[in-house]
Write a protein that binds this DNA or RNA. Structure first.
Length: 561
RNA sequence: GGGCUCGUGGCCUAGUUUGGACAAGGCACUGGCCUUCUAAGCCAGGGAUCGCGGGUUCAAAUCCCGCCGGGCCCGCCA
């Protein structure tokens, strides 16, 4: 499965050997990709030429004369570059044969027998999910799918903050206010209480005091109080789950923050750090080295209750017992917190491996989204809008039953939202614009789904017999397609190792784009037997890989669109 | 003020980790392609001092320094 990368490595090794032998020079050779039409790999000889004080032609010729690898078809000297044309077509024989035999399974990496605990989303259950933090579930869930493919066992967590101030505000609102609403979805109905309570809070000391009391009860571990709260928070959480389901996001575990208090983990953390703790006005802290400076990290308030940070330590210790690698998908605002947490954990337990993936908020042209202030675009509304647009687009093209229309418009509309957010690098700040969020053309999920449907349609008309030989491949478009297909394992590896799910989107788009060119330039069904079967093989390979990519991105892949 | 981060055609993005050949795509715009496997597509075209200024290098969007602009963070909040 890794032949293409191996070919590259073997050329690099061979070049290093030849340069050593011929010129007695030890250099590390890194091949790069030349511009279109100039071969497959390029070796820049600048360093070598400088050392040897010879012309590129002279040095190039000497290298070419001593290089003898089956995989190389042709070598050209172009300026100070040595361009390698690789005979990679034969690689496609085994690749496609394996796809035929094992299907998508052949695309999975070997099991690593390592478990990843992946926490993402973890939005406060005080209102519906909004687009501002909408990147979190999309990045998180794509990582889950990607890392599984890459050979990890993955357990996903949603950390439910039921111990915090935000939750207490909602609880106060629900228990003390009366608000009429005909919102059917409970997260949308209950957020009104949260917003109203926040409003009251601003200029009413009494309200503020009552909320403090709720928080206090929780943090002291009042189980009655906690139980009542959860009933309310769960309603909001269920609304959030519904939204997540629409974009194909699901979790293994919902972990309630207050469990850490009730079950004693917080106390354990405090006990284990007690010897290092110092006191200040009745509160306790430890000192942590941060960029050479000592920083106070408070763990216990002067009223004896724990802080979010303390509970987060406990939670990460718990996660470290459940898996080998902890990955958190976090908003950029958590950066300092997360770094501090890693430092503290090092003090408590050795060898905890944590990787944090940060993303920037999606904002509105008029500023940051805020549930409290009501300046938000809810994910539900965006999804609804996208579904409607998908319906319109479908009806422009075909007449189908209402049932099919509903199904298809969700698969196209919801996916478009997921893709349009996923495709952008996490840390890039993103200003929400309806036009971009609802993009259905070019670099978009309908484009991918469309190319997939085209492939599917061909195979439906004429199933592939399974015979394929790269000898029959000669068209430019066919070769580009094979080349792109063979890159698949490298892309999965790169995206997984660097925890960059958007790399999958980029690759999938390029692949679909190349397939569309192939589709236009290389008719399949009307060719003679050999050519037809070979092209069917290519279409099959494309279809299988595209399906796999779409699944990895959590995007639906209807057979026809 | 300090720290982190982003800045690429009118708009959006890839490329930055590991420096290399004319900076690659999408949207929008202009023109062409459906009696032939789905035109959500394909082809062609115009449009970029890669925020600014220095430096390192044979070679800088990429590395280093300074500056400018946007975002985030600097709690006994979460």
């Amino acid at each position: 499965m890794f032949e293409l990368a191996n070919v590259k490595k073997s050329i690099e090794k061979e070049l290093e050997r030849i340069i050593q032998n011929k010129f007695s020079i030890n250099i590390k050779v890194t091949l790069e990709t030349p511009p279109e039409g100039m071969g497959d790999f390029a070796f820049p000889m600048f360093d070598l030429l400088k050392l040897l004080k010879k012309s590129p032609i002279e040095v190039g010729k000497q290298i070419i004369d001593s290089l003898d690898l089956d995989s190389i078809k042709k070598i050209e000297i172009s300026g100070a570059y040595l361009n390698f044309h690789v005979n990679f077509l034969p690689l496609s024989d085994s690749f496609i044969r394996e796809l035929k035999e094992k299907g998508k399974e052949s695309l999975n990496f070997p099991k690593k027998n390592k478990k990843v605990i992946l926490e993402h989303t973890s939005a406060n259950p005080t209102g519906p999910l909004h687009v501002g933090r909408g990147r979190n579930p999309i990045i998180g869930d794509t990582l889950r799918r990607l890392l599984k493919k890459y050979g990890y066992d993955v357990e996903t967590h949603y950390y439910v903050n039921d111990a915090g101030r935000q939750s207490a505000i909602l609880i106060y609102g629900v228990e003390n206010l009366k608000i009429e609403t005909n919102e059917k979805k409970e997260d949308h109905a209950l957020v009104l209480f949260y917003q109203k309570a926040n409003e009251l809070l601003e200029n009413d000391q009494e309200v503020s005091k009552k909320i403090e009391e709720i928080m206090m009860d929780i943090e002291r571990g009042d189980e009655e109080r906690i139980k009542r709260n959860r009933e309310i928070l769960l309603k909001v959480l269920n609304g959030i789950k519904e939204t997540l389901k629409m974009i194909n996001v699901e979790f293994d575990i919902f972990y309630w923050e207050t469990d850490l208090i009730i079950q004693g983990q917080v106390k354990k953390v405090i006990d284990s750090l007690r010897s290092e703790m110092k006191e200040e006005n009745g509160a306790y802290y430890i000192e942590i080295d941060k960029d050479g400076k000592n920083e106070k990290v408070f763990l216990i308030r002067n009223d004896g209750t724990s802080l979010y940070f303390t509970r987060d330590i406990a939670y990460h210790l718990l996660k470290s017992e459940r898996g080998d690698l902890i990955i958190n998908v976090l908003g950029e605002d958590h950066k300092p917190h997360a770094e501090l947490l890693q430092n503290v954990l090092k003090k408590i337990k050795n060898g905890i491996e944590i990787k944090n993936v940060f993303y920037s908020f999606v904002s509105l042209p008029e500023g940051r989204m805020s549930t409290r202030k009501g300046r938000v675009v809810y994910l539900d509304d965006l999804l609804e809008e996208s579904r409607e647009k998908a319906k319109e687009e479908i009806l422009k093209r075909r007449n189908i039953s209402d049932e099919k229309l509903n199904d298809l418009s969700e698969k196209i509309g919801f996916s478009a939202v997921r893709y349009n957010i996923l495709k952008i690098q996490n840390e890039k700040q993103l200003v929400f614009k309806w036009n971009d969020a609802l993009n259905f053309e070019g670099d978009s999920s309908p484009f991918l789904q469309y190319s997939y449907a085209r492939a599917n349609s061909i195979l439906k008309k004429q199933p592939w017999s399974g015979s394929f030989s790269s000898e029959y491949i000669m068209e430019k478009a066919e070769i580009s397609l094979i080349k792109q297909i063979l890159l698949y394992p490298d892309v999965i590896e790169n995206a997984s190792e660097n925890l960059k799910p958007y790399k999958i989107a980029k690759y999938a788009y390029d692949l679909a784009s190349i397939f569309n060119i192939f589709y236009t330039e290389c008719p399949v069904l009307k060719e003679n037997y050999e050519i037809r079967e070979n092209r069917l093989g290519l279409v099959f390979a494309f279809k299988t890989i595209m399906e796999d990519l779409l699944e990895t991105m959590g995007i639906d892949h209807p057979e026809e669109i």
